[in-house]
Amino acid sequence: MFELLGISPQALYSQLLIGLINGSFYAVLSLGLAIIFGLLNIINFSHGAQYMMGAFLAWIGLTQLPQWLGNPDFAVNYWAALVLVPLIVGVFGVFIERTMLRRLYKLDHLYGLLLTFGIALIIEGVFRDWYGVSGQQYEIPEVFQGVINLGFMYLPKYRAWVVAAALAACFATWFVIERTKLGSYLRAGTENPRLTQAFGVNVPLMIMLTYGYGVALAAFAGVLAAPIFTVSPKMGADLIIVVFAVVVIGGMGSILGSIVTGIGLGLIEGLTKVFYPEASAVVIFVIMAIVLLVRPAGLFGKEQ
C-alpha cells in the first residue's frame, strides 16, 4: 500500500520513531509546564533554557570536566549525569523561585512570564558566549550503541531507551500526583492554596519544590536529548515554542492529557515529514489554530 503512495515502509517507520521521540520530549516538557502552572500560575518561559542547560551540563560533565581537573577519571558518565544534572538544575530552579519568582505571586501572572523570559535570555546568552552557536556532540553510552532488529525495521537502542525513560518519568509524575498523599496536597494546593495552608500544609515550601521538580524534569529531558540532538544553546528555545503550542492544544488541566497530547502531536509531526515534508515545521501550529477554532479550551482543558 505504501509503495503505491511512493513511500517506503522503512521511511515511514523511521519517521514515526522520530515522531515518537519528539513526542516524548513534548510530553515531558509540557508536563513540567503544566505542574508549574498549576501551583504557581505562571508559565515558565525558561523551561526550554533549563532543558538546554540539562543537555549542556551533561556534555560538560563528560567532556570538559576531566580537562579542567586534568584527570580523565573525573568524567561524569551518562548515568551519573542522568541523576546529578536534574538535581543541579533543580536546585538552580529553587534558587530562582526563592529569590525572584516569589516576589511576583501577588502580581498579574504576565510578570512571571516576562521574568522567566528574561532568565531564558540570560541562560541562553551565557551558554552561547561560552560555547558558541555551533552544536556539540555527546556520544551515545556504550550499552545503547547498536540496533535491535524488529523484523520490519531496525530500532536504534538508544532511541528506544529515550522513549522508555521519558514515558517512565511521565508516569512516575502522574502516579505521585494522582495516587500519593504528597500528590493530594499538591492537588489541594492547586485548587485552593489558602485553604490548604490553613490545614497546616506548608504551601510556600510545596511551591518551591514544585518549581524545582518541574525544572529538574526539563533538565532530565535535556540529558536524554544530549546524545540524539546536537547540544547547542538554541536547542531549548526552538523546542519550547512548539511545547507552548502543545500546551494550548492539550490544555493544562490534566496530566494524562499532557502526555497523550505530547506524544500524539509528535507522531503527527513524524507522519507529516513522510507525506508532506514542507509542512512538518508548522503542522503543530496549524493544529493549534484549528483546535482554537473548534474547542478553544483545548482538548483536555476545562472552560473557565
Binding site: 525572584m100 516576589r103 516576562l114 521574568l115 528574561g118 532568565i119 535570555l121 540570560i122 558566549d129
Partner: peptide
C-alpha cells in the same frame, strides 16, 4: 554577544 545577557538582566530587573 553579551548583549543578549544584558537584555535579559534588564528584563529581570524591570520585572522585579
Amino acid at each position: 554577544s553579551w548583549v543578549q545577557v544584558i537584555m535579559g538582566i534588564i528584563f529581570v530587573v524591570c520585572v522585579l
